[in-house]
């Protein structure tokens, strides 16, 4: 599993975080001076877990109705804001600045 240190090495990383299966924040790291806090990251973790569940429900429904596979199991979820994106996979995630974000690299780092 990815280490938070490695995630913070990604270009434009604002925060790296780990959460439980039910979405509670377990640990985190923040870049100096970023406008994030533990409470926000805990909320963000819950948002990510909720959306991974929704996406899993949709993937199951879609695959069984259309016969088009390749969506389940859901590997990762990304939330794009105006200036930042949160990329999560499994129980870890990283918040990246959009203008520097390398999403492929983030998924790769999260999978390591």
């Amino acid at each position: 599993m990815a280490e938070l240190n490695n995630l913070m090495d990604l270009d434009g990383a604002v925060a790296a975080f780990e959460f439980s299966d039910s979405g509670e924040l377990v640990s985190h790291q923040l870049a100096d001076g970023c406008d994030m806090n533990e409470q926000t990251l805990d909320m963000l973790s819950h948002v990510c877990v909720a959306n991974l569940s929704i996406a899993t429900m949709q993937a199951r429904g879609w695959e069984s109705l259309t016969g088009m596979g390749g969506f389940y199991p859901i590997g990762g979820f990304t939330l794009m804001g105006m200036d930042w994106s949160a990329v999560v996979q499994g129980t870890k995630g990283v918040v990246l600045e959009n203008n520097k974000a390398d999403y492929e690299a983030a998924y790769q780092a999260l999978a390591e």
């Binding site: 429900m57 949709q58 199951r60 429904g61 879609w62 069984s64 109705l65």
Partner: peptide
């Protein structure tokens, strides 16, 4: 809507 769609 999705529940109706997926379960028919």
């Amino acid at each position: 809507d999705q529940l109706s769609m997926f379960t028919q």
